[in-house]
Structures are given as C-alpha cells and as structure tokens.
Design a protein around this nucleic acid. Sequence first.
DNA 1: CGGGGCTATATTGTCAGACAATCAGACAGT
DNA 2: ACTGTCTGATTGTCTGACAATATAGCCCCG
Lengths: 224, 224
Amino acid sequence: MYDDLRLEHSSTVDRTADEIRQALFAGTLEPGTPLREIALAEAMGVGRSTIREALAVLVADGVAVRVPNKGVAVKQLCTADIQDLSRARATLESAGVRRWRAATDEQRAAVRDRLDAYTALARTDPDPAALTDAHLRIHRALVGLTGSDRLLAAADAYSAELRVGLAHLDRVRGNIGEQVESHRQLVEMLESGDVDGAAEELDRHLASAEVSLHATIGHDTINL
Amino acid sequence: MYDDLRLEHSSTVDRTADEIRQALFAGTLEPGTPLREIALAEAMGVGRSTIREALAVLVADGVAVRVPNKGVAVKQLCTADIQDLSRARATLESAGVRRWRAATDEQRAAVRDRLDAYTALARTDPDPAALTDAHLRIHRALVGLTGSDRLLAAADAYSAELRVGLAHLDRVRGNIGEQVESHRQLVEMLESGDVDGAAEELDRHLASAEVSLHATIGHDTINL
DNA sequence: CGGGGCTATATTGTCAGACAATCAGACAGT
DNA sequence: ACTGTCTGATTGTCTGACAATATAGCCCCG
C-alpha cells in the first residue's frame, strides 16, 4: 500500500547542476568557455557555495574540467579523448552485446524499445538534440545488457562527455537513414542469435563513428 | 628538462578527502557510520564548506552515500552491490584480457610488474592492507589492457568501493599461496598466447571471489 | 622597439556565522 | 494504538570576509 507515492526532493544544487548541464548539451556554452562562480551565482540567483557544489558535480561527471586556482571550464575533447572514449564505448557495448543471451528479458526488451523509439523519431522531423538523445539511449541499452548499474553509470558519463563535446555541431553526422538501418540490422542479428556477427557490426559502427568524430573535432588543445 | 619537478598543489579539500578515504580503507570508520559535517570539521580543523566538498568527492567516488537531509555515511555493500560490482569487474577485466595481443608492450609490462610485486610481497610478512593493495593493482592492470583511461577510472571507483566494504574484515580471504598461483597461471597463459584460456581462468577467479564476498557480507541493508 | 619586472585587478579557495528546512525522538492527549 | 506537538540535532543554503593565486596592463630599461 502507498507504493509509487514518493515526493521528489530535488536540492538546489541538483537543479543548478542540471540547468548548467542542459546549457552544455544545447551548445549554449561552447567547449572551453570558463564557468565563473560569481557570475553564475548572480545569474541563477543562488549562493556561490551552491554554484561551487554544482560545478563539482559537473566536473565529476566529466562534462567540465577544473584547473586549480583558475576555475572550471566546459570540457573540450581532444583527439586523445576521442580515442579513449571510443575504446571505452567499444569495450562496454560489445561486452553487452556478447551477453545478449545471458541478459534478462527486460534488458533485451530495453534495446528493442530504444531502437523502436529511435526509428520512430527519425521518421518525424528530426530535432537534432532529441535525435542524438534517442541514439545514445540505444547504445546505453546495449551497455545495460551487462547487468551492471555501475557500468551503466560509466556509460552515462562518457555519453555526457560526447554530447557536450559535440553540442556545437548542429549537423548531426551524415545520413540518418543509414544510421537507423545500421542499428536495426545490429538488433536483428542479435534476435536471430548471431551474437558474433552483431559484435562485428557494432565494431564497424563504432569505428566509423570514431573517424567522423576525429574529423569533426580539430586538433585543439585545452587552453582554458 | 625539469620534468618530475612539480610542486604538489593539493587543495585542502583533496587532502581532507584523502584522509577520510584512508580511514575508510583502514577500517577505522566502519560501513554505515555517519560522517557528520560539524564534527569532522572541528576534528580536522577545517571549515564546514571544505568538509562538504570533501564528502561530495567521496560520494562521487562511491565510497560513501548521501541521504538527502540526513547526511553522508560510509557505504555498506549489500548483496546486490556485490553482484553488480562482480559483473563490472568481470566485464572490464575480461575485456582487457581479450585485448592482450592488441595492447601495447607498456600495458602488458604493467601486468607483469604488478604480478611480480604481488608475489614478492606475498612472500614477506603480509600486511593485509598492503597485500590487497598489490592484489587490486594486478586487476587494475588487466583493465588497463583496454587502453581507456576512463575505464581505468571506473575500475578505480569500484576497487575503492570494494576496499571500503571489506575493510573491516582483517582476514583477507583464504589461502594466499593459492591466490598467487591463480594469478601467476593467468598471466602465464596470456604470455603463451592462450587468451581464451586466460579469460576462462579469470572468470573462475572472479566467480570464486564473488562467492566469498557474498559469504563474508551478511544480508545487511543500508540503514544509516 | 622589445623584454623584464612590478602593480592592480579578478578569481578562486577557504573560513565563519547565520538561518530556514528537515528529521528523529520524546511526550502528551485522545 | 494512533495522532499531534515540541524540541534538539543536522543538513542545505546564503552572505560576507579574507588570503592565495593568476591575469593583464603598465612602466622602466636596455
């Protein structure tokens, strides 16, 4: 009795961090932009301590970097980051794919659902932010096949990093129809039991994603 | 020139967080113990804001949990946590093992070095904390084979969680000689090119670790 | 004209104090 | 046994303050 009856208690720090995060995702704040404590505090109508804690959250998330005595800035991806992120993605997602059979029905259903949502969304007028969101949810569901919430958390972290790093590119890469087809094919292979084939397809997908990432990002270095 | 010449600029928050973390690792603070802000601030001679930031670090690390409006407490592992952690370990480490051939010489050398250090240490009088430290370093090096710093960071996080959860057990589990032999055999199989065999050996090792973890931890629930 | 060093300013890191909000326990009333 | 209220403890947040540090401008000197 009285289940599903829970009042959400969001702290000011959480709401503040969320709002800044949304701005990063939206590309309102470009990578490299310094996040000044006093300015943010005044702009958002909260105390500096609150802003500091919110910034600490964002840094822990990996979407911002702190340079001691200089401040926090929006994270900028360099080529080494992209390589690292790609390896992390490949490791976690292909581990999930290989566990397809061992996964629970719920976890497998999540993959299908995310795929369906993605294809449905791609058919409509594709708001780029929502589309990448749906896209990342598929990959997140693949990691979910591993059955570890901690790995899911790690996946969320690098997804956020990717989103921020690429937010200023409005043109989501390439052909949407081709993307949809690639994911559909991946899941289809899984459904038919061809796990190894799916893993290979995933590797190809991620490898091509990595090259386009490298192409879009210049060889910038973090300068703050 | 002038490399390895770097004045360590550790902030008070970092030092504070480190000190508390060490206490958690040492088992001075048992799982479930509440970490009161004012008491810690007075005991350590720092301001409450500093303690709050340090606690936020520990929570982000996963070695402590925050309950809104109630405070932060030393993390207590429940059976679900152990299962989740074990899956995360198995996923990351076997992914690393499977990349043995693709890894760099440096990464492979790290595995050997950690193994050597562990066996050497096991021969001497085994200080339990140092021994588990050396042990975890081997497994960390296995994750390092994936070539992703972010995955290494994730591995560090769950290692810390494990250490805190098991700090109050002074008796490190079971037969040390057997443990050493298991790891030595694993690396030997890798050296001889039997990657699949090594992966199986690792799975066995982690599975047996999981059952002993479940055995040592009761079915406690977090109560704060 | 260019470079070294100095000063002024901005920003962070840390502390102290204050107050509302929330929580746990005691206690009384029905 | 259940409810309502009170009280003390603790967290969440804000404000103001100050030292340490980094940045930028400026002046002086060669």
